[in-house]
Amino acid sequence: MAIHQPDAARWTRRALVGSLFAVGAAGLLGCTVANGPSDRASVDEGEDPLAGDPSDESTPGFEIAVGDYSATVADGWKSVDDGKGGVVVTNGANRLTVVTVTIAKDALAVNEVAALARGHAEGFTGAFAAPVDRSTADVKRASVAGTGTFKGAPARLLCELWIDSTGFALLTTRIITASPDSVISEQAQEMVDELSLDF
């Protein structure tokens, strides 16, 4: 009987240590699982993908490109990852979004631009005017303007759509809080002009 007591005691100690380790590990795992989703939820709630740090600083000669279209970023503007595959440049509460889209060859730009504008006006609240057909014999083109607010400031929106003969299209959306005659407004126009040069 005395020979078996040390073994029993060792087994009891092993079981106790093993149980404590298992409980501790389970508790740690439980804390990790419990804290993980709530932390992510608090970060994700209301997070603006365009409000974070810029992915590229504004440096002289820096370029943005979407498909075959590119432009030099104006001084003071920064590139931001919008998480949607487009290109976004910002300067304070001013934003230019550039994307390419595929549209049916027989579609008219004037019939497509309003819906596209609303889909790329994130953060803008306001009213849209009627789309304007700016097509030529070679290019289908249209624009739509809006007035409202962006980031708490009065803002103007201008969305422009170009469609080539294959149905490939370029869409630019400007949301500008700076005054119409400001350097920022001029810079945004220059970038759009450069992007759409091949149209």
Rank of each mutant, 00 (worst) to 15 (best):
I3E: 13
G24N: 13
A129W: 02
R141A: 11
V144C: 00
V98A: 00
L20A: 14
V66W: 02
G148H: 04
P6Q: 08
L170P: 05
K151S: 13
N91Q: 11
A34N: 01
T12A: 15
L158D: 11
A26H: 10
S182K: 08
A178C: 08
N91C: 05
E47A: 14
V101E: 13
D56Q: 15
V110R: 10
D68G: 13
K105W: 00
D138C: 01
E122V: 06
D106L: 06
T149L: 01
A178H: 03
D193Y: 01
S42L: 12
G152H: 05
L96K: 04
T173L: 06
V101C: 03
D181V: 02
D39F: 14
T32F: 06
L50Y: 05
E47L: 10
F168Y: 13
G146C: 00
A51L: 07
E122P: 00
D48C: 01
T136V: 04
W11N: 13
N111I: 00
G24C: 14
A129N: 12
R95K: 09
A26G: 15
W77Q: 06
V110D: 07
G27Y: 00
I176V: 13
D7Y: 14
R40M: 13
K140G: 09
G148T: 08
T59F: 10
R10P: 01
R40T: 14
E63G: 01
G30L: 11
E194F: 02
G27E: 03
D53C: 03
A26P: 06
A9F: 02
D133I: 11
T72L: 11
T147I: 10
R118L: 09
K140L: 09
E57C: 08
I163G: 05
L195C: 02
Q187D: 14
A107D: 15
R40C: 07
F124Q: 05
G46H: 05
V88G: 03
G146D: 01
F21L: 14
D164L: 12
L16M: 10
P6T: 11
T125D: 09
W77V: 01
Q189T: 15
F21R: 14
S143G: 10
N111H: 04
V139N: 09
E112D: 08
A65M: 14
G85A: 04
P60G: 08
A188P: 06
D56M: 15
M191S: 04
R40P: 02
A130Y: 06
D82G: 11
V144D: 00
G52V: 07
V80T: 10
H120P: 01
A2N: 09
K78Y: 07
V98L: 02
P60R: 10
S182H: 08
D106Y: 03
Y69E: 10
A51N: 02
A130W: 08
A22Y: 10
T136D: 04
V23K: 06
A130S: 13
L197Q: 11
V88W: 07
T166Q: 11
S196E: 01
L171D: 03
G36A: 15
V43R: 13
D193C: 01
P154H: 12
L116S: 07
P54A: 15
A104I: 09
G36L: 15
A178P: 09
S58Y: 08
